[in-house]
């Protein structure tokens, strides 16, 4: 849930990268970290296994600039993609303000994409969110590979909500910031009813 401090003019929002395992969620965060200047980012926190598969979440705090007088902080999280980490995904989704669904564009990954999307829809509903209204963008990742579905097919099969979609090659950064900017705009325009005056500054 977004935190707005009307006195210090600060906004905190939570964005979650969701999607099937090895689809590119962590790669997105890593690229963003690499391409963000030092003053505007914290450390990437990665809770992962020995083979660097996300175990619980990745986290990257981004201190963006000001928008209409408000300093903006985005808290970027990824969820673990492997099927058996469903409980962890539910926890990471709590308090989410915006979502990026990172799909693996390879033809053979369609089933996994669909299952992950179904899990997202169910987990959101369980927490009282409506996937039809929560800020959401789709990212069709791994567009550089040879065995990928067309973007039209990706949209037809996976984007029944007709939300903005972006092609990407996260490992090179293509489409990464475009996706993040799109969901950021939705999140900022959706801020209302956030708790007032709760933020961290030392007295």
């Amino acid at each position: 849930m977004s935190f707005v401090n009307y006195i210090s003019k600060e906004i905190n929002c939570k964005i979650v990268y969701y999607g099937p395992g090895l689809g590119g969620k962590t790669t997105n965060i890593q690229y963003i970290y690499k391409k963000t200047s030092g003053d505007h980012k914290g450390q990437v926190i990665s809770l992962n296994s020995d083979n660097e598969r996300t175990l619980f979440f990745d986290f990257l705090p981004l201190n963006l600039g000001e928008i209409r007088g408000f300093k903006t902080r985005f808290h970027l999280y990824t969820v673990p993609g492997q099927v058996f980490y469903e409980a962890s995904r539910k926890l990471v989704l709590r308090g989410v303000d915006g979502l990026i669904f990172v799909a693996d564009s390879q033809v053979e990954k369609l089933e996994e994409n669909l299952k992950s999307l179904a899990s997202l829809e169910a987990n959101l509903a369980e927490q009282g969110y409506d996937i039809n209204t929560i800020p959401l963008v789709m990212q069709w990742n791994k567009r550089d590979l040879s065995n990928v579905m067309s973007e039209e097919d990706m949209n037809e099969k996976l984007n029944k909500w007709n939300v903005p979609s972006f092609s990407s090659v996260a490992i090179s950064g293509e489409g990464v910031f475009e996706t993040l900017k799109a969901v950021s705009k939705q999140v900022l325009m959706n801020i209302k009813g956030g708790a007032i005056n709760e933020n961290s500054t030392s007295p």
Binding site: I67, F177, S184, L188, M189
Partner: peptide, 20 residues
Amino acid sequence: FLFNDIKDHEIDQLFKEVRL
């Protein structure tokens, strides 16, 4: 709502300040 009708250039500006 806190903001009405955020323009694309405002988002671009937000990110322009942080990108290397």
